[in-house]
Amino acid sequence: MLGDISRVQKIYLVTGRTDMRKGVNGLMAIIRDTYQMDPYANALYLFCGRKRDRIKALYFDKTGFVLLYKILDQGRFQWPCNASEVRTLTRQEYRWLLEGLSISQTKAFKHARKKEF
């Protein structure tokens, strides 16, 4: 299914700003040439532009590259804008990012235990 990332083993966030005019080949070049990583790996690579209101995600699904693009209607992504580097995200941090939350949550609520009365 197009956009199904359930089988992706790693999620990488490229911090800083990326030129959102770049397509698959340009983003592959960043992954390969700047960070010496394999764009064909079973991984999702996330990029964000200067305005932080849009992100691109790139991954290889065994038959070709999938490029996902999300533009927020309102607000901005809580994107780390420090020097360009690659950071590994957990699936929870990925969900937080897409929900507009900071990936640097210091604490998350634990699921409540079922109480017996």
Rank of each mutant, 00 (worst) to 15 (best):
R113D: 13
M37T: 11
I5A: 05
L89T: 10
L44H: 14
A108P: 02
Q105C: 07
A57D: 06
D53S: 07
I31R: 07
G3W: 14
I103G: 11
L46I: 10
Q74A: 01
D19Q: 00
L46D: 10
R21H: 12
K10Y: 01
K115Q: 12
A41L: 03
K51H: 07
Y12A: 06
R21N: 11
F60M: 03
T63V: 05
V14F: 05
M1G: 02
Q36P: 06
T106P: 13
A108S: 06
F109W: 07
L89C: 08
I55W: 06
T88K: 06
E116K: 01
R32S: 15
G64L: 03
Q9P: 07
D53P: 04
I11L: 11
V24R: 09
D61E: 05
I11F: 04
Y59Q: 05
G100D: 12
D33R: 08
T90D: 13
C81W: 03
I5L: 13
M28D: 00
T88V: 06
T90F: 08
V8M: 09
I11Q: 04
R87C: 13
R32H: 13
M28H: 05
V86A: 12
G26D: 15
L13T: 07
V66I: 06
T15V: 03
I30R: 08
M28W: 04
G75C: 04
G75Y: 09
S102P: 08
G75D: 14
L58K: 11
L13V: 07
F60N: 03
P39L: 01
L89I: 08
K114I: 12
E116R: 02
